[in-house]
Write a protein that binds this DNA or RNA. Structure first.
Length: 847
RNA sequence: GCGGACGUGGCGGAACCGGUAGACGCCGGAGACUUAAAAUCUUCUGCCCUUCGGGGCGUGCGGGUUCGAGUCCCGCCGUCCGCACCA
């Protein structure tokens, strides 16, 4: 056995062995319990980055650990291969998006293989493959037939740089999520998926996802945005251009007697009507539209209103007429685009009322005595009972809401209703590199689904990207088709599906991939739901919500008996790195700086460099570290070990040269220990035959702790447990226990550093692969110590410690503690007032 | 503004249910081996004081509960994340 572990040799060797033996192929027909471990599949951008390595290492440790514990494990990998970077590359580098994508996949697959992940490559998927997206087209038609897909003219978010439509979710602060360009509004005919039909169940379903981070559940809850309240009609005192009334929505119908004005959005039909007869109104509306939508602008934007001169009747008292304003803070796309203002109990309404001199009437008071207290500069939003509200007086808010809704429904001027923030999912994209939408447009028949036997509708290869826009639109032949219904010549839909559709069901296809159907229900159900899904928080809303919706939609139309696709979710932190700047302010890559005499310098010029914040690895800050050369230098195991060490997996991991060096050293330390056993030479053999009880205890405690920590995805703690065991073994005197501890250590580290473990396992003469070995069993009797350290405190301050048998009597511990010199010195002869004894832990003497 | 997370040595972090704060790793110091270096090994390493026995302080800040608080409660401060004129 070599003095040093040679990862380059070992990595390649074992990776080949695993592949040849099909070690990690998942069997559908296995009698073992099943475990489905999945990491979010990568976009094939070119090369693997450290974030991928961290993500997949975590999943890999869990997958290997589950295998060792007797599970049939499905741990697949694929490619989220459609999307715009491929088209950007096509424009910039004059390569076909398909060629670019496939070559990236090849590169990245080779890179992933070198890290030795326990993946079932036989189930590999690329979403740009017609074998995949053809089935997606079939599923789209299934949803279409079930009435869950519809087409409508709608104002969309148009990204003028990418020349495409964006979903609401893809607009961040009024800018395209990818291009960063200011988004414009345009009217286009778009395909929509009825995700809002599922709003309630998507919200309720969150309650059962107890293995999801609370944070993600909250984010989805907020995104779905359920508000319950009253929708009711305001009648105009005198009509304006054919309008007699309009509807408003409120979550606080109990405060209706506090109403002092009504307000509508600038693009509300009534506002438009007013504008058509009044120039000043039109001018005000124009001004509203100018305002920016960024967070900062909204923060500082003044609440502005335009008094239309119109009056509306209070629904509970026709004698009360409220002024109607057009207001810049009322949004057309939320609720009904109209509100009533209750200044006393809503800060925004209060600001507005003060500005325009409107009355402020308190209708909620914390107590009867405060019923007449005036409202100052701050709206009252606390608890209390209704006042100044006629028949509602004395009721709580909750009862008041119920009362008003009841009356509105009985009198026919309103109804209790629920308003959602969630919108239907617009899936049309004016892009080439995506799944073609399987629809044909016929002048006579309208939109007609492509017949199933014509699927897949394959993307044409002969396209050009020299002008912006969708090349499918200007293709000479592809976009022409005969109408499946009447046979007349018709146009093929040239929009493609949002790539989030591709990632909404890939986990089902991994579980089952027949040639003639998207999936086989029984096989898919045997694996689903995914037991542990691991990926970045950036997908907390979009991808995870869409995948949940898609799964529920398939379930509703009877294709699948699974409601929630991901039983456990884990969102891992990013890999970060220090940033460096040159004196002229430009960013420097890590290999461009050097440390000399404790000072940071630019390697090439010798001028002083500056180190900046530790930030997420990004091309713009130039602080990326490419995993491949690191693997070349240190081997896969050292990299894997580093990815798991130190930082808790949900937090950021700062990459450092020193860190990877440390991991490399530990891999070699493990090797030296294993070598002792393999060579049958060293101290571990030559010792006596007595059992080393403390070491045995440490061993069993470690087996249990590592298992519990891997189970909890607390890899950093599992790593620490292993370090402790390795330290204990190294310090232990030769004994048979020491030898078996080393053998067990190899098993414990095998999910993390599998290449080293396989090599050591073989060198120690053990049969088979360590990858097929069972996780060691724990002897529960060895988990407890028979001697414990007791802390001795005086007035809560530690003064001494003493050893005692586990389970020693309270009186004995008290006596031992009082006998301590150190305790006596502190007590100065005084008698203790009280002694608290916590068995097996401490004695606290109160003086 | 709303919602959430977090704050522990020079650094990453550990600490079960309130019971010895700082496990484990990194960095750093001293020493051994070596012609030398690397590798490896031994050892020290929260801060301050010390007559080297010890003593004091210490988990963002200020209070409180308790025999005992990193942990629980109240009030601040700070950092990060998500959403946002949501009626």
């Amino acid at each position: 056995m070599a003095a040093r572990f040679n990862p380059l040799e070992a990595d390649a060797h074992w990776q080949k062995v695993w592949e040849e033996r099909g070690t990690f192929h998942a069997s559908d027909s296995s009698g073992k319990p099943k475990a489905y471990i999945l990491e979010m599949f990568p976009y094939p951008s070119g090369r693997i980055h450290m974030g991928h390595v961290r993500n997949y290492t975590m999943g890999d440790v869990l997958a290997r650990f589950r295998r060792m514990n007797g599970f049939e494990v499905l741990h697949p990998m694929g490619w989220d291969a459609f999307g715009m970077p491929a088209e950007n590359a096509a424009m910039e580098k004059k390569v076909h998006p398909g060629a670019w994508t496939r070559s990236n996949i090849e590169t990245m697959k080779a890179q992933l293989k070198r890290i030795g992940f326990a993946l079932d490559w036989s189930r590999e998927i690329a979403t740009c493959d017609p074998d995949y997206y053809g089935h997606e087209q079939a599923l789209f038609l299934d949803l279409y037939e079930a009435g869950l897909v519809y087409r409508k003219q709608s104002e969309v978010n148009w990204d003028p740089v990418d020349m495409t439509v964006l979903a609401n979710e893809q607009v961040i602060d009024g800018r395209g999520w990818r291009s960063g360009a200011l988004v414009e509004r345009r009217k286009l005919s778009q395909w929509f998926l009825k995700i809002t039909d599922f709003a309630d169940e998507l919200l309720d379903g969150l309650g059962e996802l107890d293995q999801w981070p609370e944070k993600v559940r909250l984010m989805q809850e907020n995104w779905i945005g359920k508000s319950q309240g009253l929708r009711f009609r305001f009648d105009l005192v005198e009509p304006v251009v054919d309008h007699n009334s309009f509807e408003v929505f409120t979550t606080r119908p109990d405060t209706i007697f506090g109403a002092s004005f009504a307000a509508i959005a600038a693009d509300h039909p009534i506002a438009q009507a007013v504008a058509s007869i009044r120039e000043d109104a039109a001018a005000f509306i124009e001004e509203c539209k100018k305002g920016g939508t960024t967070a900062a602008e909204l923060e500082t934007a003044e609440k502005k209103g335009f008094d239309t001169g119109l009056r509306v009747r209070h629904p509970l008292d026709p004698d009360i007429a409220l002024p109607l304003y057009i207001a810049n803070f009322v949004l057309m796309d939320y609720g009904t685009g109209a509100i009533f203002g209750c200044p006393a109990h809503d800060q925004r309404d209060l600001d507005f009322a003060r500005k325009y001199g409107l009355p402020v009437t308190r209708v909620v008071a914390p107590s009867v005595e405060e019923a007449a207290d005036p409202i100052g500069g701050e709206a009252y939003t606390g608890p209390g009972r209704l006042v100044n509200s006629r028949f509602l007086d004395g009721l709580t808010a909750q009862d008041g809401i119920r009362e008003v809704i009841g009356r509105a429904e009985a009198e026919g001027w309103g109804e209790g209703t629920t308003v959602w923030r969630l919108r239907d999912w617009g899936v049309s994209r004016q892009r080439y590199w995506g799944t073609p939408i399987p629809i044909i447009h016929c002048d006579a028949c309208g939109a007609v689904p492509v017949p199933r036997e014509q699927l897949p509708i394959v993307l044409p290869e002969d396209v050009s990207f020299d002008i912006p826009g969708n090349p499918l639109d200007r293709h000479p032949s592809w976009n022409k088709a005969d109408c499946p219904r009447c046979g007349a010549s018709a146009r093929r839909e040239t929009d493609t599906l949002d790539t989030f559709v591709d990632s909404s069901w890939y986990f089902i296809r991994f579980a089952s991939q027949p040639a003639d159907a998207p999936f086989e229900r029984a096989d898919a159900e045997s694996w689903l739901p995914v037991d542990q899904y691991i990926g970045g928080v950036e997908h907390a809303i979009l991808h995870l919500l869409y995948a949940r919706f898609w799964t529920r939609a398939l379930s509703r139309i009877g294709r699948l008996g699974v409601e929630e696709p991901f039983k456990g979710l884990f969102t891992q932190g990013m890999v970060t790195h220090e940033t460096y700047k040159a004196p002229d302010g430009r960013w420097l890559a890590p290999d461009e700086v050097e440390s000399r005499d404790g000072a940071l310098i630019v390697a090439a010029t010798g001028e002083a460099a500056e180190s900046g914040r530790v930030e997420k690895m990004s091309k713009s800050k130039r602080n990326t570290v490419d995993p491949e050369p690191i693997v070349d230098q240190y081997g896969a195991d050292a990299v894997r070990w580093f990815m798991l060490s130190d930082s808790p997996p949900e937090r950021d991991l700062p990459w450092s040269e020193a860190g990877i060096e440390g991991s490399w050293r530990f891999v070699q330390r493990l090797w030296r220990l294993a070598s002792e056993v393999a060579e049958g030479s060293h101290s571990s053999w030559l010792g006596g035959d007595a059992e080393d009880k403390p070491l045995l205890r440490k061993l069993h405690q470690t087996i249990a702790a590592v298992a519990a920590n891997i189970e909890a995805l607390a890899f950093n703690k599992a790593v620490a447990n292993i370090y402790e065991l390795a330290n204990a073994i190294e310090k232990a005197a030769p004994s048979p226990t020491r030898q078996s501890a080393i053998e067990t250590l190899v098993l414990l580290v095998s999910p993390m550093v599998p290449h080293l473990a396989e090599t050591a396992w073989a060198a120690m003469g053990r049969d088979g692969l360590v990858s097929d070995a069972a996780w060691p069993t724990v002897d529960p009797a060895l988990l407890v110590e028979d001697e414990v350290t007791i802390a001795v405190q005086v007035n809560g301050k530690l003064r001494d410690t003493l050893m005692a048998a586990k389970g020693a009597a309270k009186e004995d511990l008290e006596a031992l503690a009082l006998a301590s010199d150190k305790v006596q010195r502190v007590l100065e002869g005084k008698a203790p007032r009280k002694v608290i004894v916590v068995p097996d832990r401490l004695v606290n003497i109160v003086a």
